[in-house]
Design a protein around this nucleic acid. Structure first.
Length: 592
RNA sequence: GGGGUCGUAGUUAAGUCGGUUAUAACGCCGGCCUGUCACGCCGGAGGCCGUGGGUUCGAGUCCCAUCGACCCCGCCA
């Protein structure tokens, strides 16, 4: 139509027009969400990031606009000038934020046409991930994803706001940095200037933030990308974002208090939700015993109880043998488990099998004992003792796993969550936070045949336990803490080692030789000698936090351009081969 | 590295025991329609059944391989 767009500016977002604008002339720009052509009158739902408003093209208002409006198709980009008016009585649409009004168009410019999109953007159909990712720019037009990314932006803003007020200084650290042993596989970047040598993308800015403490910044934070070349999961991407925090002259209590405040501030600002503080705390040991995991989901019960002492001398040979071989027998109780079918119980057996459990025994508690394949092997005393420990009542179902301690924890820990979902035990919208504390400093790695850090090698041990490092490293505790939300680890941190002698001792305990230590971490050990303050910190997974806040099923739904499970980008087709010239410049050769 | 689910029209799905022309809904195209809002009505187009091989008189369907998406184990200080 006219080129009014070049003279007129947009006056409002589509979703922002409301009853207060009745009688005003507005200029709107946006995408055609849907068109309803009644022959005489044409309705267009115009959409932008703030929402949808109905635009009416009536030939009695503008015959030329009405004619032009016939051309409009889905996702055409429009500029519309028109009069905001109250909808005729009975024509209001309560499903729309703008449903009280409509815009009577008297000028229209089609700013751009659009091919028919490969999927409808109204969110009514479940589109396959493949198609969504290939047309990510269209998927991102969907209000649901826009909402997630807007929430993400607000979370980041609330974080900065809180931390700036609390005296934290945002400092950027390098992405092109040094590959270090321990931890995840590094993403490597070849150096052209230094042929045959490589940078690594940071798995976290860990060492840099400690150096900033040595530099005296006292309180540092950064919202920063981290990179780990490991396999993906529904809540794991190879590049992800951390809220990274470090403080000097503090203790665990200071960090926990300030960070609880930050999380509460984020929830208040972004979701309007008050979180009760302080968050509960649970020791690593207790979390493992009661929930089988160091990231326990506290939204439901189904706690694990160990029965080894009752069953070690049992007439049920399998149990007795497992107990004699250092294994354990544990169970969880499903209250009122009548709804669980025989098939369900079989499915649970398959479910725990993936965690290495050889079997799953079950028992239904009935008035005169149990209905159970193992009932005949047990004495009434054993059954009674188990019922008592499990607090079992008639109608309950008990689920037993007997195996090595690790397998039993894994199997029952995961079965808990599986059951809770299946039985609908999780209250919608529940947010169960807990700190997990008193981690072991080391864990023994069967694959590497040595002790590895539970958190990372810079975590301070509990100093009184330091002597145990030589004799019984598995017994030493770390000054570390994780924050868990709904069974997801959303943050973790520790008080760091600020003494060179302690740091050296830890590297040694991890099996690193002097030469390796000095080539990989020499700069850190040097720095520790120049007046390092006691310090500690924490890092939160921003993606996971937003995912949980948004109620998203996948981390991909809170990342604008995520990778597929094979770590590729379907949209850009990355990664991809490079030219021989590029390789030569880097003195690289593809050998496979 | 391993286990599983899936792949049929643009999209989402159905497709029986291997058998004639592969269905439906939405979307798309054309027509009609002045109050719809997942508008309605009439008509129409649209398919390398992921790909390659095999079995068979005959394969969307059975077998093998392969590619891709997703979920999980391992891995992720």
């Amino acid at each position: 139509m006219s080129d009014f767009i070049t003279i007129k500016k947009r006056t409002h977002y589509c979703g922002d027009v409301n009853g207060a604008h009745i009688g005003e002339e507005v200029v709107l720009m946006g995408w055609t969400h849907r068109r309803r052509d009644h022959g005489g009158v044409v309705f267009v739902d115009l959409r932008d990031r703030e929402g949808i408003v109905q635009v009416v093209f009536n030939p009695e208002i503008s015959a030329s606009c009405h004619e032009e409006a016939q051309r409009i198709r889905s996702e055409y980009v429009l500029a519309v000038k028109g009069l905001v008016r109250r909808r005729p009585a009975g024509m209001e649409n309560p499903d729309l934020k703008t449903g009280e009004i409509e815009v009577l168009a008297h000028d229209l410019e089609i700013l751009n046409e659009a091919k028919t999109p490969p999927f409808v953007l109204d969110g009514t159909a479940e589109i396959s991930e493949n198609v969504r990712l290939k047309y990510r720019y269209l998927d991102l037009r969907r209000p649901e994803l826009q909402k997630n990314l807007i929430l993400r932006s607000r979370v980041a803003a609330a974080t900065r706001d809180y931390l700036q007020r609390a005296g934290f200084i945002e400092v950027e650290t390098p992405f092109l940095t040094k590959s270090t042993p321990e931890g995840a596989r590094d993403y490597l970047v070849p150096s052209r200037v230094n042929q045959g040598q490589f940078y690594a993308l940071p798995q976290s800015p860990q060492i840099f933030k400690q150096l900033l403490m040595i530099s005296g910044f006292d309180r540092y934070f950064q919202i920063v990308k981290c990179f780990r070349d490991e396999d993906l999961r529904a809540d794991r991407q190879p590049e992800f974002t951390q809220i990274d925090v470090e403080m000097s002259f503090i203790t665990e209590e200071d960090i926990i208090r300030i960070m609880e405040g930050m999380i509460a501030h984020i929830f208040k600002t972004c979701l309007g939700r008050e979180l009760p503080l302080p968050f509960p705390r649970i020791s690593y040991r207790e979390a493992m015993d009661r929930f089988g995991k160091d990231n326990p989901d506290l939204r439901f019960g189904l706690e694990i109880r160990e029965l080894t002492d009752i069953l070690q001398g049992s007439g049920f040979k399998l149990f007795a043998e497992i107990a004699a071989g250092g294994g354990v027998i544990s169970a969880i109780r499903v209250a009122d488990g009548k709804g669980l079918s025989r098939k369900d119980l079989d499915d649970f057996k398959d479910y725990v099998a993936q965690y290495g459990a050889g079997g799953l025994a079950w028992a239904r508690v009935v008035p005169d004992g149990w209905t159970s394949p193992i009932y005949k092997f047990l004495t009434p005393g054993e059954v009674g003792a188990i019922n008592e420990r499990m607090e079992a009542r008639e109608g309950d179902v008990l689920l037993f796993v007997a195996d090595s301690p690790n397998v039993v924890r894994d199997a029952l820990g995961n079965l808990r969550s599986h059951l809770a979902k299946k039985l609908g035990l999780i209250a919608p919208g529940a947010m169960a936070f807990t700190w997990v504390t008193d981690f072991p400093l080391f864990e023994y790695s069967e694959t590497e045949k040595r002790f590895v850090s539970t958190h990372h090698p810079f975590t301070s041990p509990v100093l009184e336990e330091l002597p145990l490092i030589e004799t019984d490293p598995g017994k030493v505790h770390a000054r570390a803490y994780d924050l868990v939300l709904n069974g997801s680890e959303i943050g973790g941190g520790s008080i760091r080692i600020h003494r060179k002698d302690v740091q050296t001792q830890i590297f040694k305990a991890l099996g690193m030789g002097d030469e390796e230590v000095s080539s990989k971490f020499g700069f850190l050990l040097d720095a520790l000698e120049y007046g390092t303050p006691p310090h500690g910190g924490i890092a939160f997974g921003l993606d996971r936090l937003v995912m949980l806040m948004a109620g998203a099923e996948s981390i991909r739904d809170v990342i604008a351009f995520p990778k597929t499970q094979k770590a590729t980008c379907v949209l850009t087709d990355a990664p991809s081969p490079v030219s021989v010239e590029q390789l030569m410049e880097l003195s690289l050769k593809i050998v496979t």
